[in-house]
Design a protein around this nucleic acid. Structure first.
Lengths: 250, 250
DNA sequence: TCGACTCGTAGAACAGTGTTCGTCCAAGGA
DNA sequence: TCCTTGGACGAACACTGTTCTACGAGTCGA
């Protein structure tokens, strides 16, 4: 065996080593890690590639777009949402509320990922599974099919929007904004409004800012579900609907 | 008067000419023009500056941020929303519905500007005026103050989200996607779902895709308003609430 | 009338971004 | 064995928001 030739110095070996072979799912996993660590704006092709010890161009063999990558990230995150075993039409409002909160819990646990879901039609596997579950539930309750179908749309928007709003808050806090001070500023801003043009708003400054995110979220869900309830045929309304008292009711 | 000295060639006059002196409102106007012509992603500091015959750095004397510029753009757009002269509690649901559609009309007439309003607290003058109007209306109807306050939150989210969703559609069309073909693909996608895991969804493909944007929008508004209605104290419910028949009611 | 002193105007540059091009290497098939 | 194929990837392109720094014109006080 002859002595090995030295490397020609300017002809470097092409790469160091990618520990694992690059793959679609590995890239998505990494992107989620970066997302959790630095937020959605931190998820750049370069950043993800760097985390994998390579350059951005390498990602494009497995993912056609940044948009597609983000869709995959969203789908992976959505798959963490744990759904109940089966629909319980007897307590459909409670069950939907629980699902909404579970969804928000998962979404907000991955920074501002919910921004991705706004304005994108949910066609991922987990997203469809959730749709299927809710649709089934609403039909079992007795809602007309068209009402159930459109209601899903609204419910999805409610979840996404609220999750995004919550994450905007969270990001603000993460960036060091004192949330108490922030609310104080908001409060005094409302109080400082000219009373001749904004009499109602100015007088209700406290009421406008009352309640935490969860409380407001629960309220919006309840309003939507009560509205849905009104579409129940008379028969279904009788046995399914046990009107739940609420402290805001008169 | 002596003959004028020639210009030293390499010592060019610092600038050509900004027709009008730069100003905050002129910049915002220009940004809106660019927005209408090229969409939100076309609104860059360079693009706006170019339209004004100058460089991006010049804008920063009047506007501290791109974020601030976009907020100003949103406020200017919002000021185009025409509100009714005064609240009419006797037909509050109809009036709110009209306002929602008017808001959507204005927002979608400026491409995808509604993306700006998602996740930003509406503190602009026109935005506050709308809030003031709706709050006044809801209180006159007889809703408890806390309900009215939180309802505004939900109503705003509904308007913004739907406007954004509509604009995503519109942008897709503007980019040349055949919308009929697109819906056809969606339809056959739903039909191709495995029937064992998505029986309901697969069977309701038509129902899921039924209805145009306006119809769906109207439905969501109606659901939310009916939900709100249920928070009316018994007394107010009697005279204010004339239950409106709806073709989807059973 | 003359400086000083602002303040709006910009060119250049910085550190990023998503994406594409063309080249390289290694594995698989004929 | 050669040839093809497809993933990897350095370099580059055309952008982005923002800052630095110098320059010009105008105003104000002396």
């Amino acid at each position: 065996m002859p002595a090995q030739m030295p490397e020609i110095p300017w002809h470097k070996p092409r790469k160091a080593e990618p520990r694992q072979p690059l793959s679609r799912s590995l890239i998505v996993e990494t992107a989620v890690r970066v997302l959790d660590a630095e937020g959605l704006s931190g998820v750049t092709m370069r950043r993800v590639a760097q985390e994998l010890g390579t350059g951005p161009a390498s990602l494009y063999a497995h993912v056609s777009n940044k948009e597609e990558l983000l869709d995959l990230v969203l789908e992976r995150v959505t798959s963490e949402i744990r759904m109940p075993a089966r629909p319980e039409p007897g307590r459909w409002k409670e069950q939907i509320t629980e699902i909404c909160f579970e969804a928000q819990r998962v979404l907000t646990s991955h920074r501002d990922v919910s921004l991705v879901s706004l304005g994108s039609i949910p066609l991922g596997e987990s997203q469809l599974a959730i749709t299927e579950f809710l649709l089934d539930l609403l039909l079992q309750v007795g809602l007309p099919p068209q009402v159930a179908a459109w209601a899903l749309d609204g419910l999805g928007q409610l979840i996404d929007t609220d999750a995004y709003e919550a994450s905007v808050y969270a990001e603000r806090i993460a960036r060091g904004t004192d949330i108490g001070e922030y609310f104080g500023q908001l409060h005094s801003f409302l109080l400082a409004l000219p009373a001749d043009r904004f009499p109602v708003l100015q007088g209700m400054a406290d009421t406008m800012l009352a309640g935490g995110g969860d409380e407001r979220y629960a309220f919006k869900i309840e309003v939507f579900l009560r509205g849905l309830e009104s579409y129940l045929p008379a028969g279904a309304r009788a046995d399914r609907h046990r009107p739940s008292r609420h402290r805001l009711d008169a």
